[in-house]
């Protein structure tokens, strides 16, 4: 089967890969490039565990073809921290115990980052609706919402 030769920027690194036409961006990240921080929970866009940033928007990487990412800028959870410094969302998730098993955490962190880039001061309701596509079965969402709100507050300089 003919593969496609793709060049994309992943977490700041220009990256080339070969992919089958049916392979999704999630398949490529996990199986070809070993970016296993991005998780697969459903493969149909219903759980959000595979959320990554693509050209500045958060998407379900299970619903993007690997071939579509040619020339794209992709950011995954592995690229969130700045050197030794965790992103404030990462810090707050640990501080607020906003993760239990942690499988949904990478997707929720990326989606939350996308929210705060657009809306630095979201209400609780706005956070809940923005993250409605990120399923978490452990926490009941309470501590996740608190962590996102607290990270937003800190990022606003409070």
């Amino acid at each position: 089967m003919a593969k496609y030769h793709i060049t994309a920027e992943i977490n700041g690194d220009e990256t080339e890969y070969l992919c089958e036409p049916e392979q999704t961006l999630l398949d490529v990240l996990r199986d070809e490039l070993n970016y296993t921080g991005t998780k697969e929970g459903c493969g149909s866009g219903d759980c959000g565990a595979c959320t990554v940033m693509m050209n500045g928007r958060h998407v379900c990487s299970c619903l993007v073809l690997g071939a579509e990412a040619n020339g794209a800028k992709i950011e995954t959870v592995e690229g969130m921290a700045d050197g030794d410094n965790l992103h404030p969302l990462q810090e707050k998730f640990i501080e607020h115990a906003a993760l239990q098993c942690g499988i949904c955490t990478p997707g929720i962190l990326v989606a939350s980052k996308a929210l705060l880039e657009r809306n630095p001061d979201p209400t609780e309701t706005e956070v809940r609706y923005w993250l409605a596509g990120n399923l978490c079965r452990c926490t009941g969402y309470d501590k996740i919402i608190r962590a996102v709100m607290d990270a937003a507050s800190e990022m606003r300089g409070n």
């Binding site: 996990r30 970016y35 296993t36 921080g37 991005t38 998780k39 697969e40 995954t76 959870v77 592995e78 969130m80 921290a81 965790l86 969302l89 990462q90 998730f93 640990i94 501080e95 115990a97 993760l99 942690g102 499988i103 955490t105 990478p106 962190l109």
Partner: peptide, 18 residues
């Protein structure tokens, strides 16, 4: 802070399919 926290917010933690 849970000791496995950083691994789980950075994508380092390895799950079944990883």
């Amino acid at each position: 802070k849970r000791p496995d926290g950083v691994d789980k917010v950075t994508g380092r933690a390895r799950y079944g399919a990883d």
